[in-house]
Simulated assay, not measured.
Amino acid sequence: MSIYYDDAWLPSLDGTHTKRVYRHGTAIAIGRVRLWQTCDEGELTHEWFTAERWEAGRYVPIQGEHADFLEAVERIVLDLATH
């Protein structure tokens, strides 16, 4: 399945940033990836990603955290294949 995703990270009300994921040839989102960040005082910023699938008019979290954006995108595609 060919997919694409937003170019820019969009800010969310909860402080995360998101990119929507689409099936190629459609403008309907199949899911989104959230970017989470924490920064301890005097420490480096820690980042991780979570995946959510679009189902019945809302985003449904897919269990697990990912160290890489593309890994989270792959999780959406795999989850879509099983639902």
Rank of each mutant, 00 (worst) to 15 (best):
D6Y: 05
I76R: 03
I76P: 00
C39N: 13
H17D: 08
L80W: 08
I3Y: 14
C39S: 12
L44V: 03
R58K: 14
R58P: 10
R20L: 01
L35Q: 13
H46M: 01
A81P: 02
A72G: 14
D68P: 08
A56D: 15
T50H: 07
A51K: 00
T38S: 08
V77I: 13
Q63G: 13
R34G: 05
F69D: 01
D68G: 08
V60H: 14
Y22A: 03
I3D: 03
V33F: 09
P61K: 05
E41S: 11
W54D: 07
E43C: 04
G57D: 02
G15T: 04
A27G: 08
L35S: 09
F49Y: 15
A67P: 11
R53N: 15
V33W: 10
G64S: 07
E74Q: 14
D7Y: 15
V60C: 15
R58T: 13
T50K: 06
G42L: 00
L35C: 10
Q63S: 12
A8I: 05
Y5P: 00
G57E: 01
D7M: 13
R53G: 14
E71V: 09
P11R: 06
I3Q: 08
E74H: 13
Y59R: 10
P61R: 08
V77R: 12
A8M: 06
Y4L: 11
L80E: 10
Y4R: 12
A56N: 14
V21R: 03
F49M: 04
R23T: 07
R34M: 10
L44D: 05
I3L: 06
F49P: 01
D79K: 11
W9K: 07
M1N: 02
A81Y: 07
V73H: 04
H17W: 09
I62A: 11
E52V: 00
L13C: 02
H24T: 02
I30V: 14
A67G: 13
T18H: 14
G42A: 01
S12M: 13
L44C: 05
E47W: 04
V21N: 04
A81C: 06
I62R: 14
R34W: 07
R34T: 09
G64D: 07
R23H: 06
E55S: 14
A81R: 10
Q63M: 12
D6P: 03
A29Y: 06
L80N: 06
L44W: 04
I62N: 12
I3G: 03
W9T: 05
H17Q: 12
S2N: 15
A56S: 13
P11G: 05
C39Q: 15
V73S: 02
R75Q: 10
A29N: 04
I76N: 02
E47S: 09
D40H: 15
T50E: 08
A67Q: 13
A27K: 11
E41W: 09
R34A: 10
T50N: 05
G15N: 05
T45R: 10
D7E: 15
V73R: 02
A67L: 12
Y4M: 11
H24Q: 07
A29Q: 09
R32Q: 09
T45A: 11
H46S: 02
A51P: 02
H66N: 14
D68S: 09
I28V: 09
D79Y: 11
A29G: 04
R32G: 01
G57I: 01
W48E: 10
